[in-house]
Design a protein around this nucleic acid. Structure first.
Length: 545
RNA sequence: GCUCUCGUAGCUCAAAUGGAUAGAGCAACAGACUUCUAAUCUGUAGGUUAUAGGUUCGAGUCCUAUCGAGAGCGCCA
């Protein structure tokens, strides 16, 4: 995973082989001060009788490598190495050329998942940010990626809305989007207290499934009311999708999935409901006792629909961890019903918590809307810039960077005050650092001497070394579906750059031309890589602050 | 009750899937501005990685138990 060290690894491996030590040699970055990389394979053999001979041979051979400038083998067998300037110069740039995957795959990213009638709220930012980031990361590696927002535009929620409209005799044609937002929570609440109302909603939902024209046209009205609003909001937040499919697109597939399973005896009846024949505890429920469909059924239909329309090698679902069991059931059933031979991955994540350490509620109607959060962040950022365009990018940066920084497996606390500060691990800080770099690169200077100085001071070397580590963090994010590795790395890059910036003046009169050239190249490398990581995370650059 | 996820500095979070002395950011304290924007930078202090065992050259990471937190447990999505 470390760029450009394969030769060094095989060199060590060869030498160890000569002494009849057969290990798969691995070099890793070192935490030890003044050591760049280390190899631990020799540790287990530190008591071997010919250890001194091995050490001698290793030292001699490794020092001849142009990428290595210093070698030290500790008493206990750790092989500590330092990179040469040649290595640092070469691997601190052109990163995007090195991360192309040798095996190209097609992948569908299912994320976002907004529901009709329910406004996007704070709880949606993780699926949006993580989904978009993974999409960008895999795209950068050369994979064929496609994103699908997977709208919640069918089933019981729609039944509830339509039942409520009917019950309250609301004129559906004069309905506005704002009315819709009010209706859903009320309908949801009513369904919990009134069994009759719940049954009515269920009936409507069933009729929709059998293409009842009256309800279908009402559904369409609601759909057309909701979708443009969702699109506008997401666009302003810089989220884009290749596909805007929803549950309503797979109604036919859901029916055929169930029918086929029945025909192949993959389901059995239980209290009127259909249950998968797979031995599971609890059993996997395919249809309700009244014959209507469930969340799981819809997801199975979606798989069939995708297999038919945009078959992929991998399907990646970015949905919160509470639905882990659900996806286990979906994926098992996909295999059991033989719906697809592709691989299915659930990328889960924890909740976004408020200051009270509790997640923002989604169904009590009293939610923190995403649009409101955007406004609140923007308000805080006004002290940094008054330009509306810059302010919007900055706001989206905070909304994304703060969210991608923690490991997705854990819950985290959203602290508005903290996240909008320029001091600290924040979106504002990283934007400020790259703006500084931009400014330096745009400065027009007369440089006469064209020699580049190839010796590096401590600040320069530290930055170059960190720049060369991109491949590692990129692969961590890619292999584990965890963007936070890149987010953390980006911050440390910016921090190291700011330190370099403060201690190494480029355009001062007592800086010789060859040093100016060298430093401008370093700044250029920093700026290019920063831009690359920004795009991986789904963040746009501001050009001033 | 069963099953997952997790417990790291006062607070918010990292840590290569087993490597040497566990790192950042806030907050606290002490410094650096006639500056390529100090909107920044540099120090100091802060830890028995929930607890107790185990596995081995080596454990925050793996195994067992206990305590504590959050989540999920057929007819919502």
């Amino acid at each position: 995973m470390i760029a450009g060290i394969k030769d060094i690894e095989s060199e060590i491996s060869n030498i160890l082989n000569e002494f009849e030590i057969q290990d798969s040699v691995e070099i890793r970055y070192s935490n030890i001060e003044n050591t760049d990389i280390q190899c631990n394979n020799l540790v287990r053999y530190s008591n071997a009788p010919n250890i001194n001979e091995i050490k001698e041979k290793l030292e001699k051979s490794l020092l001849a490598n142009p990428f290595i400038e210093n070698i030290e083998i500790a008493e206990n067998g750790f092989i500590n190495l330092n990179f040469s300037n040649e290595y640092l110069k070469k691997f601190s740039k052109n990163h995007n050329e090195r991360i192309i995957s040798p095996k190209k795959e097609s992948m569908l990213f299912d994320y976002g998942g907004p529901n009709i009638g329910k406004d996007l709220h704070v709880g949606h930012i993780r699926t949006l940010n993580i989904g978009r980031s993974l999409y960008n990361i895999f795209k950068l590696a050369g994979h064929d990626v496609i994103s699908d927002i997977h709208l919640g535009d069918w089933g019981m929620p729609i039944g509830l809305i339509l039942a409520y409209i009917e019950k309250e005799s609301i004129d559906i044609n004069s309905l506005s989007y704002i009315d819709l937002e009010i209706i859903y929570p009320k309908a949801s609440e009513l369904s919990a207290s009134s069994k009759d109302f719940y049954k009515e909603a269920q009936e409507i939902s069933k009729k929709l499934n059998s293409k009842n024209e009256e309800y279908l046209s009402k559904w369409k009205i609601i759909y057309n009311l909701a979708i443009p609003n969702i699109k506008n909001l997401l666009q302003s937040l810089n989220y884009e999708f290749d596909l805007w499919r929803g549950e309503s697109d797979v109604v036919e597939e859901v029916k055929t999935v169930v029918a086929d399973a029945q025909e192949k005896n993959l389901v059995v009846e239980d209290d009127g409901a259909l249950v998968s024949t797979e031995k599971e505890d609890p059993p996997i429920l395919i249809t309700k006792s009244d014959g209507s469909y469930l969340y799981l059924t819809t997801d199975l239909g979606t798989v069939v629909h995708r297999e038919k329309n945009q078959k992929c090698d991998k399907y990646i679902y970015v949905v919160d961890s509470r639905q882990r069991n659900h996806f286990e059931q979906v994926f098992k059933t996909v295999k059991h019903f033989n719906l697809s031979s592709s691989s299915f991955i659930h990328v889960g994540f924890g909740t976004v918590n408020g200051p009270d350490k509790k997640p923002f509620k989604t169904r009590d109607g009293n939610v923190y809307k995403l649009s409101k959060l955007h406004e609140d962040i923007k308000e805080k950022l006004k002290k940094y810039n008054s330009n509306e365009k810059v302010l919007n990018v900055l706001t989206n940066t905070v909304l994304t960077f703060s969210d991608l920084l923690p490991n997705r497996n854990q819950n985290y606390e959203f602290d508005l005050e903290k996240f909008t500060d320029i001091n600290g691990k924040t979106g504002v800080y990283i934007q400020y650092a790259q703006v500084r770099a931009q400014k330096l690169l745009s400065s027009k200077v007369e440089i006469i001497d064209t020699n580049i100085d190839n010796e590096y001071n401590l600040d320069e070397r530290k930055l170059l070394l960190l720049l060369s580590k991109f491949d590692y963090f990129y692969n961590q994010s890619l292999n584990n579906y965890q963007p936070h590795h890149l987010a953390e790395y980006l911050y440390s890059l910016c921090q190291t750059f700011n330190s370099f910036y403060a201690n190494n003046k480029i355009f001062s009169n007592d800086t010789p031309d060859e040093i100016k050239l060298k430093r401008i190249e370093i700044v250029d490398n920093f700026y290019n890589l920063t831009g690359l990581i920004f795009s991986c995370l789904g963040i746009k650059l501001v050009d001033s602050m």
